[in-house]
Amino acid sequence: MTQAIVVDSHPLDQILRADRMPHIFCPGCGIGIAMRCYAQALLESGIPQQRHVVVSGIGCTGRVAGYIAIDSYHTTHGRAIPFATGLKLANPNLMVTVFSGDGDLAAIGGNHLIHAARRNVDIKVICVNNFNYGMTGGQCAPTTPLGAIATTAPYGNPEQPFNLPYLLVAAGAGYVSRWTTLHVRQLKQDILRCFARPGFTFIEVLSACPVGFGKSNSIADGLEELQLYRERCVIADGVPLEEMGIDLRENRPIYIGNFIDRDLPVYHPVSLTT
């Protein structure tokens, strides 16, 4: 190879809405990476693209549904999960994935998140956690660390954040993992595992948000945050869930991996006919 060959299409364009590229995500933002892992998993899922459906809520990550060339629904803020529940129950043949952000899923959509986990509805949830509300410019989210700076916390966030894996396991979820946008191979593999696994699955994907969170919390750009991930991420092995909180400003290990994988009865509406 002498030089890089300039082309005008990417192998994944077949599953993307290439006519809408480049997408809106900021330079260094991790959502594109998480989206790519999902797109790759779609191709390798062995499930015809026709049966895949993606539902997303509002927020930066909410825009992902608009870039994947399958049946995609960009719903209201926080309501992606119940919408996806209705879709799945009306047509169980569909593989329904909810792809949304930490604010959308755990703040306004929190009630639906824990109930879907409790019910073990057969929908796959991918939650891109960038520790703030990115779309609206960097406000506090339920995952923003205590003391972190945000446009709605100029003197430091006065609230304790959720530890999402801990929350989801406590809500009864059968499958909970956490990866980052640096762990692209593991993330794609885990999404494939979720496709193959009946019931509710939840993957938290830590992602850089240089504009909304990074720059006001001394993480210069996406590159630097991924370098943090590289230094600090540790596959959790027997670490108690309550210690899985994250504060990127502290040099503490970030625990990733699959935290729980238990077979629970998958939610099915009562039927006397089958």
């Binding site: 309501r79 999960i81 209705g86 009562v270 006919t273």
Partner: peptide, 27 residues
């Protein structure tokens, strides 16, 4: 609904109820 092979689900609130109805309609 169980007699007819339909779906009845009691959701966690009204927000979820209408969202699920829209999802089902989309399907």
């Amino acid at each position: 609904m169980p007699e007819l092979g339909g779906v009845f689900i009691q959701m966690e609130d009204e927000l979820a109820s209408i969202a699920a109805v829209l999802g089902a309609s989309a399907a």
